[in-house]
Write a protein that binds this DNA or RNA. Structure first.
Lengths: 232, 232
DNA sequence: TTTAAGTCTCGTACGTTGTACGATTACTGG
DNA sequence: CCAGTAATCGTACAACGTACGAGACTTAAA
């Protein structure tokens, strides 16, 4: 069996004669594959990504992809992580507003995933790509610097992560087309007799998702950080 | 096209001569299909559920399933909701411990989903089955009775829902086999230089998931409910 | 009794999917 | 010239969801 490239990040040696492809096609590479996968996912959704369509879009044969990528799950993992790069806004390296830093990073996270709705549907998987690890590292460091005790750090990080993921997944799966929304409303009205409290809270209609998200995040941060310990 | 049964809950008329099946197979029904689907999902996981295997297990032809069920997505929806029935513990109808009631229901919810790990992977979908609606109704009513203002009810319910879903999905996807856990740890150590804060918090090892869940839930409830309003 | 309309089961077949396998080509260092 | 190894890709296969339509059976009307 041939020794396949996988996992590692070995650089492909520069080809001596780059003018080979009949079309102006760049040679296949892991990066190009992932970039095309993200385009396809954005355009067609999760079910729209097939290895054949991906190969077509790249102008290559289907099986060529498998030299650079282990399997389709691998493509999903790479696409998910690739979209989650984070550049924190330029500011003094020792920001005093740790709370604002955390909120900014988490809202950015959520915004990205809502901009690429397929990413939410990919979430129930083990995600340890470099960009996600980078975000966790930043979160960890920020909270630590803010005075959260090492013993509580785990709980703090996971609570925030959980909250963001839950809010994003929920929001993404309830972000329906107008037709679907009408159908859902109709369905609720059919059952209105049985669910007066839901009816009264208008749970599934005209929600301020962003506001709810921010509010809940505030509650969590209030609870997680040592009170009266902030600098602002 | 034949008028297919769907959506509604029409009772199948009792068959006059019940001793028809060569084996002791009960006749096909939506309920039997869903029950078998849950068994199959429990045993083989999400990818293990195929219409053919499901039909085999029921001793029927594949296409017979489609009389009772719209398609495979429908089976997933039904299986998910069917598992989430909730019986609240017997107690005085007007419990004073609303906080305990909420915690009990949400922890039960999480426990069920961890007992059926496939349910977490199904989550990014619109879930409005009767059992889930029942839980939302109960949650809504409990919070309302506890003094949460109508205007805040939406935010309260969604925050709790989001938190529970996020925690469950995360927990389920990180609940690895021992081998996988070793691999993940190895991977982290490979990158240890780049992620000192994660390393220090021991984020991915020996976590007390249940404790973290409970703690974060407490913070949320503290924030959501009017403080000093509880009865205990 | 005959007829017609459901209700329910299921065999066959089609198109699509992920990917195993091996042939093929290009380029490298000896 | 040769051996190795990096990379591409055509063919083939098993498995999938499900459309279609033929049938068997039950019930109600004629």
């Amino acid at each position: 069996m041939a020794v396949k490239r996988s996992g590692g990040s070995g650089k492909r040696p520069r080809r001596a004669k780059p003018a080979e492809q009949p079309r102006g096609e760049a040679p296949l590479s892991r990066e190009r594959i992932v970039a095309s996968a993200v385009e396809l996912l954005d355009a067609e959704g999760r079910a729209g990504l097939t290895m054949r369509r991906l190969a077509d879009r790249l102008g290559s044969g289907v099986m060529s992809l498998y030299w650079h990528v282990d399997n389709k799950e691998d493509v999903f993992d790479l696409a998910l992580d690739s979209v989650l790069e984070y550049r924190k806004p330029p500011q003094t390296p020792r920001s005093r507003d740790w709370r604002g830093d955390v909120i900014h990073m988490l809202e950015d996270w959520r915004a990205i995933m809502l901009r690429h709705p397929w990413s939410a549907s990919l979430l129930p998987r083990q995600v340890l790509g470099p960009n996600i690890l980078g975000r966790l590292e930043l979160l960890s460091k920020t909270l630590s610097d803010a005075g959260v005790a090492d013993a509580d750090l785990n709980a703090a990080i996971w609570s925030l992560w959980n909250y963001v993921m839950g809010a994003t997944i929920t929001r993404a799966s309830f972000d329906l087309s107008v037709t679907d929304r009408a159908a859902a409303q109709q369905r609720l009205e059919d059952l209105s007799g049985h669910h007066p409290a839901i009816e009264r809270s208008r749970l599934l209609m005209d929600d301020d998702w962003d506001g709810v998200f921010r509010k809940g995040l505030g509650f969590l941060l209030d609870g997680l950080a040592p009170r009266g310990h902030e600098s602002r």
